[in-house]
Design a protein around this nucleic acid. Structure first.
Lengths: 230, 230
DNA sequence: GGAACGCTTCGGCGACGGCCGAAGTGTTTC
DNA sequence: GAAACACTTCGGCCGTCGCCGAAGCGTTCC
């Protein structure tokens, strides 16, 4: 009860279509401007401004001023996790099936989830790492083995924590499309960043979906033994 | 966006004070009647009935008819996890400090979280198991060691999964009061059940809070090395 | 069988909150 | 310095949804 009040407040903030669309758009971990978020949520700039004020007052999003733009991003990984968990519940719900369009298909194939990889590609990488004994996952957690540490080093990933960053190396996150846990935490984020740096994946315009490049296909095959993910 | 719509629907359902109070009341894993839930949420029976219809249509709660009563319970552990995650986000929020009353204090000390233990007691047990090498936890996951398996057997706990139950043995759940992960999953649930069976803990009336009994204090000391948890 | 009980459905009231047009503030560009 | 731009604030409109009284259905108790 005591916490029920603020539980309702937080949920009510996410429970508006426009705000939910904004938060979904921010789930890829990027920071977006107020106008971009207005476009994503399908409302006018004034309305978006009001929504964003509420979201940032409640510490769901954080804002950075830069010139005449204001960049909004999710305030913390906890917020991202809460939204992802809600999406998982939503996808369990009554089977109100929307036929899966091509864009939806792209999302299921590969996408970013806050700061790490999700979709079939995310699952495939987590599976490969597990099969090779590089990580050990239980349903909602994980640990990096010594061989695993050497392996990610060989990919050019440095897991030394930044100052004051105590985030866990290896976490899992429930994938709403595959309904299985994929790799999150510092390791998940570092892998995702590295794959962008190597040019293995690219963002699909106006979407959290990702496209695997030609070099990416080769790299994924050599490093993880992953064939065409879809 | 595609899933954003139903994300908003789910969140909006939780985002009403009355419904949030109902769900909070169900977080201890018990099934409550419609009238009990009406009382918990502070609305009339008619209103509660309407709310419960919405919640069960969206598969957030499940209902069992029994005579002239209808027992409502959370539909799945995923729903419980979503609510707990939202509570964690809520407790991070702006510092709108309510002075902690005695009931609140009892909640922080020991309570049930869906089907497992939380609060200082839950943390203490998780810490003890970790310190003795019985379980290994990373921030959001965990594994039971072989010695751990023998230990819980010695407490009279059988972790053989029920038919068709593939729930993970060892998971973690972020504690909103302690802000640290405590023990969930099949192991967390089994420990909780066993402690009720042994008479170590008892429910405090009309609350998720728990009281540790005299035998409980002795048992906790002998089995886990836990002194007076508060 | 009738009364008490638990729960739901219906109908109408009222308020909260989302929405946009218009106008205002601060920043960049030329 | 003026114009263009990004964003916010204000004010008023309107729809949605939560609320309860009254009434209806099914179960249990005596």
């Amino acid at each position: 009860m005591i916490s029920g009040i603020t539980l309702a407040e937080i949920a009510a903030l996410i429970g508006d279509v426009a705000r939910a669309n904004m938060l979904s758009a921010l789930m890829d971990g990027r920071a977006l401007t107020a106008s971009e978020l207005a476009w994503h949520s399908g409302v006018s700039p004034q309305t978006a401004s009001g929504h964003l004020a509420k979201l940032s007052e409640a510490n769901l999003v954080a804002v950075t001023r830069q010139g005449r733009h204001r960049y909004y991003r999710l305030a913390s990984p906890e917020v991202a996790q809460a939204i992802e968990t809600l999406m998982a519940v939503a996808s369990f719900g009554p089977k109100r099936h929307r036929p899966a369009g091509p864009k939806d298909e792209a999302l299921r194939n590969a996408r970013t989830c806050y700061d790490h990889l999700a979709g079939r590609l995310g699952i495939a990488i987590a599976d490969s790492l597990t099969a090779n004994g590089y990580i050990v996952l239980s349903e909602s957690a994980g640990a990096l083995t010594d061989e695993g540490h050497r392996f990610v080093c060989s990919l050019g990933i440095d897991l030394t924590p930044e100052r004051g960053n105590s985030r866990a190396v290896c976490r899992t996150c429930l994938d709403w499309s595959e309904r299985r846990p994929h790799l999150a935490g510092r390791l998940g984020a570092a892998l995702c960043t590295r794959m962008f740096d190597l040019g293995w994946v690219e963002r699909i315009k106006d979407s959290r979906a990702l496209a695997v490049t030609a070099t990416g296909r080769q790299g994924l095959r050599e490093a993880f033994g992953i064939e065409e993910p879809s």
